[in-house]
Design a protein around this nucleic acid. Structure first.
Lengths: 339, 339
DNA sequence: ACATTTTTCGAAAACGATTAAGTAAAATAA
DNA sequence: TTATTTTACTTAATCGTTTTCGAAAAATGT
């Protein structure tokens, strides 16, 4: 509301002096500095973001690219939670958050240009199709970028520890006596799926399990009906698995419904495991055996890394940060020897 | 990247001319205008948001205030979906979205000051404690504001039709033969709860139902354990209700667990109904009887209204927009006469 | 006492746009 | 033909900051 000029006039000094005082510059007297700061406080002065951004090329604003094909970025429980964690940390460090999109006014532009237009100091990318050339352009550009759950040589990334997650889950299932384990996994064109699946195969290899190829099926993440269909196929087999892994907790519900439609009980007749540790997973009956991803930590780490590369570009490495999940034992995986 | 100055130099005209050409002003020749526009296109020119904002006091940026006590704004399924709807419409109209928070850099300020600092053209408020004096200050200020699910005389609001929702739900339950209907409702200090509860009482009054006071209990929204406890109290009674309404689908799950712990079946032994039409509500077994709130429409209407009051302040009324929900019949309410 | 350094402050340019006012040329009117 | 209006463009101020450079005053050294 009140500008530097008025504040300067009020204190009987020049605007340059006010600017220096407020920014704790060196060439300013101690008493005038405190005088000006006090006046700023009582008059309720605060800077104008646009003017500052224009002059300094620093907006203290971070762009968030968070779209998926279904345009349901924010309703995606996992990514919404990651964003929330990101937001909390970024705001704590004095940054604001603006969504990036593909237009300026009514005109279509690339994500990269939109970032330039808003002069964001950095960008976090998640939940998008990383093959999109516009996304590639952004990651390859000169704006600091951190990606979530995706690896790109040019920028740092924060990744949920999918390999360890699957490893934990399999270990727990194995310890419960299961040897015939099926895996309905998500889309193969994502880094997440690849690392989970690799971890799955590594486990069955090291434990010398005999898993037929047809035990491994693909169903889109969050897609209830696909998961249900796959479950049906598995249950139709004469050599039925004793445990099924799902892409995520939501997709699992599709499978659960198919299981119940056949009057089978979980975990007595068949065991199932999800992924994500979604809110409902621990409310359902039985509670799901799943891997809770530490969304708050993922978001926080992404924010820390991004702000670090913004503020200290010389001394921060581009790196991959792996965030461990946590096994929620739940009750949906039972003992295979008993059943 | 390239500024107006360079563009002007490239075209051999002044920056003023470029500005006018690009903004389709009147006093500009037809041929120079097209020449400049073409040059802007080929050179990839786009404006600098900060400079424009500084000069015009229009940022084409909308602030979103979206915090609650638990600081879990974005992980709140209902509000995340509303925000998504808002975002889609706002972006379609050429506005960007920035989160509002309580600081500028590391310094604590009010939400209102933060809005001034970022020079947002308007603000949408949802999912906050509306009694917070900072929120009141914002609503009473001179920045256009639209609230979601809350009424304030100074600004327009978009409201889910809670009265009609409860009315529909009750009607459906009534038609299924239920007369002993209990209502576990959310916090009383919200407009949402008040209108739902009023609608509930109105229904039982007009249908001359005998509902004991102790059938009406309070449990926080989304709080599974509180809902479970309330459910236990209701089930302990000798005159047990035949149907229980819950604050929302999530809280309902707490009740469902209590019901199942007592080996009662839904809907054979007792009927239950939720609210929200959350994603899982239609995945559960049985599918929930609930009211799906039209979050996309709520968000869209809020954006339309806000942008309208920003762009046409003289001709837009401050009004309350009611968005109807939809009864999802599901299977969790059964016929009371049979049971 | 004089020269030199240090400290503290101000004047002015700059960031990239918009816009009011002014001017020259072209078009129209008398 | 001359006066007047219209059209098309430029100049320059401005938005609220930051920052370079210069200058005066104070401190220090000799």
């Amino acid at each position: 509301m009140i500008s530097m000029k008025e504040l300067a006039h009020h204190c009987g000094v020049s605007v340059a002096t006010v600017s220096k005082a407020l920014n704790d510059q060196s060439d300013i007297g101690e008493e005038t500095k405190t005088k000006i700061k006090k006046a700023a406080e009582t008059l309720g002065y605060f800077p104008n973001a646009a003017a500052r951004s224009l002059k300094t090329n620093r907006s203290y604003n971070i762009g968030v690219l968070f779209v998926d094909e279904a345009n349901s970025g924010l309703t995606h429980e996992y990514f919404a939670a990651v964003l929330e964690g990101f937001k909390v940390e970024a705001e704590k460090q004095g940054y604001d958050i603006t969504f990036i999109n593909g237009q300026i006014g009514k005109k279509k532009v690339t994500y990269y240009d939109h970032c330039k237009y808003r002069n964001v100091d950095g960008v976090v990318i998640a939940c998008v199709n990383f093959d999109n050339p516009e996304v590639t352009e952004l990651m390859g550009g000169d704006i600091p970028v951190v990606t979530v759950d995706h690896i790109h040589e040019n920028c740092s990334s924060v990744l949920s520890d999918n390999a360890k997650g699957i490893q934990c889950l399999m270990q727990y299932i194995y310890e419960n006596g299961h040897r015939k384990i099926a895996y309905i996994h998500g889309q193969m064109n994502t880094a997440v799926t690849k690392s989970r699946l690799t971890s799955f195969y590594r486990f069955i290899e090291s434990h010398e399990l005999q898993i037929p190829d047809s035990y491994v099926l693909e169903a889109d993440y969050l897609d209830v009906s696909q998961a249900r269909k796959c479950t049906g196929e598995l249950l139709d087999r004469k050599d039925r698995p004793t445990c099924i892994l799902y892409p995520d907790d939501t997709a699992l519900i599709g499978g659960l419904n198919e299981i119940r439609a056949r009057n089978l009980k979980v975990p007595e007749d068949i065991s199932i495991a999800g992924y994500d540790g979604s809110r409902v997973s621990q409310l359902l009956n039985p509670k799901l055996t799943t891997i809770r991803q530490d969304t708050a930590a993922i978001g926080m780490q992404a924010a820390k890394k991004l702000i670090s590369t913004i503020e200290k570009p010389k001394t921060t490495f581009t790196e991959r940060i792996i965030v461990a999940g946590e096994l929620l034992k739940g009750e949906s995986v039972g003992n295979a020897n008993i059943s």
